[in-house]
Nucleic acid binder design. Structure first.
Lengths: 364, 364
DNA sequence: AATGGGAGAAGAGACGATTCTGCAAGCCGC
DNA sequence: GCGGCTTGCAGAATCGTCTCTTCTCCCATT
């Protein structure tokens, strides 16, 4: 069929706009994209006609021609078939939210893609044109990452990549400083023997945090007291917390590396009749607001996933647009210790029931 | 330049595969896509060569040709410039997680897109080729939805659409049944006057829930006792909770429509010296696990966002692939009342502070 | 022997935009 | 008045894939 202008259903093409405006395709493209040398009158006219016809350029055609899709992949390593891990849900959710915001602000959209499972996710990956990808906690020799880098697609990781994974850039917290600072805080609150609840997996977060703990212990002249458990198992945490408090060399303060450790440890402390913070100081790493409302409120270390997400996306887009300078970049982000009752040695005796104040009545 | 085989940087095209395998482009395409009439030997050979060259078909070209991108948009209405609303974060996160899983399982990927703000998000929308879109709680005459439907893109909404928004299908909870059941539960626990903490906005969730409450009150012969506040304001909830408990006709049970209402009401109750559940029964609608750990644990109504997300995506993909039958579909999903201490009248006497005579007068 | 038909493979457009190149005017200085 | 410059626009190639159509064998049937 050489008669190509069959007035297809609904959607107007650039040809239709050109015909309706009495100009060439080139002129329409230039007018709409602010390129070329055109008088404002022509530009306005073309825009007007395009609006009237409800013209939307085909994203696929544009992507094919320009090689840029405006799409950024977002991947998390998965332990089951679910794309988010149970224990880190709050972290991921906040990180993804911030990343999405940052991407949209610069004209990109985020595509949620499965991590590198051994299943069959390759179709989905090669079915979408990506300008770049964010990977959260890539594993050692992640095949997807390797493949993407080979194709020249920029990859920025949240979390220092293990091994020699050739990512374009990465962002991570200063886990060393975070753990050291937190242990100092506990020591200042009177802790003599600080325990650690850690994980058995080999990701960088677990590894760096544990190493920082061991280093601190050595410097402080304290014997390490820790229990490790498979962090992706939602039940194992409570058991490990119990084990830690059942030890003969029971610690008088504990730091838990994972989000649920706070409640796990609190429950374990209750079982052993330990009062928090009087008999046991508690800190855990968490993004959840739960710990502001527990009894007592628990001090948490926040990794500030929002800031991480924003930074990761900024670096990625810089790399995509060539703004970044081309050299591999790594960015270390600070953490936030939110100090609550559980890590403060008996400040004042808080009365259990709140004092009734009739003055609280604001509304008349 | 007719010399088109410039051995571009890295990426092999279908032409390169054809040349390397000594066959035509057609044969390569057919071999890799399982189409055409080819002997297995040829198919294998082509696949082998393609693998060796690390060939990945161009998603953009395929999309342009076939008209299918394998991409599904996900939109939430925004109140600020953030893509998620504060009060409904947990709901959105879980819904998006489930939707993403369901989409990936059927070979589609989710693209996170901004809701219809008056800002300038049109670029992003028209820069991505979508096979369909999920919208969460679309507003009355959402321009993006209208535009998409006009272009023939299927749109499925989470939440019954207001007005006559022409969505392809929608999924929602049975809010009427949920609220009625919950109020019955409170009444059975001994509540005589049940109050409501609701919102001022006009979305269907707020509207349907409030109407269900009013209807129940009428049937039960109880005067409605409620306070409404702008739900998107994170501070207003606490104030409204306070107002509700300060009323002369103070309710002896309250249902809060929004996630933070539980803690807001709990705090307000403490300020007025009301014990939960002895003096005040509490239920709020929330997806957060916080309420299992509060003192006391609070009964929550879960909207089961995971089920909603899965269903929405299934319906959308059915519509995209023409599996659904073509007629508009609406699906009503059940909710889950998770009963905890806060809505159970004095099971056993917990030894707290002695019961104080409730000053029912309140207002001086 | 001629024909029909099926298997195997190749040719040649689309798909819908971007963009490089080129062409016709108009205007300037000399 | 003429060459060279800018301005305003059009032609046509190209991006990489899918797919409709065609073409050639080759064997079995009539």
């Amino acid at each position: 069929m050489s008669r190509a202008h069959g007035r297809r259903l609904g959607r107007a093409g650039i040809r239709d706009v050109a015909a309706a405006a009495g100009v060439s395709i080139t002129t329409v493209s230039d007018a709409l994209n602010g390129k070329g040398r055109l008088p404002d009158a022509t530009r306005r006219h073309v825009r007007e006609v395009a609006d009237r016809l409800g013209y939307r350029p085909s994203a696929a055609a544009r992507t094919l021609r320009t090689g840029k899709s405006g799409l950024i992949g977002l991947t998390v390593t998965t332990y089951g078939e679910e794309p988010f891990t149970f224990t880190e849900f709050a972290y991921f959710a906040e990180m993804a939210r911030a990343a999405s915001s940052a991407a949209l602000a610069r004209g990109y959209a985020l595509v949620i893609l499965p991590g590198s499972t051994r299943q069959s996710p390759y179709d989905v990956w090669s079915n979408v044109a990506l300008d770049g990808t964010v990977v959260i906690d890539p594993s050692d020799r992640d095949p997807v990452v390797t493949e993407l880098v080979r194709q020249g697609v920029p990859v920025v990781s949240d979390g220092r990549p293990c091994g020699d994974l050739p990512v374009t850039a990465w962002v991570d917290n200063d886990h060393e400083a975070a753990v050291t600072g937190l242990l100092d805080h506990l020591a200042a609150a009177g802790a003599r023997r600080i325990g650690l609840l850690t994980g058995t997996s080999t990701d960088t977060y677990t590894r760096l945090s544990t190493e920082a703990y061991l280093g601190w212990c050595e410097r402080a002249g304290q014997d390490p007291v820790y229990e490790a458990y498979p962090a992706h198992d939602p039940c194992a945490g409570a058991v490990a917390a119990d084990r830690l408090l059942a030890r003969p060399d029971r610690p008088d303060a504990v730091y838990g590396l994972f989000d649920p450790n706070g409640t796990d440890l609190l429950a374990a402390a209750r079982r052993y009749g330990l009062r928090v913070p009087d008999d046991l100081l508690l800190v855990c790493c968490s993004e959840s607001a739960v710990y502001a409302g527990t009894e007592p409120p628990i001090t948490t270390l926040s990794l500030k996933p929002g800031r991480i997400g924003t930074t990761v996306v900024q670096l990625l887009i810089d790399a995509i647009e060539g703004t970044g300078g081309g050299r591999p970049v790594q960015r270390i982000m600070p953490t936030d210790l939110i100090v609550r009752t559980s890590s403060q040695r008996r400040r004042r005796r808080t009365t259990v029931s709140a004092p009734r104040s009739p003055e609280q009545r604001g509304q008349a």
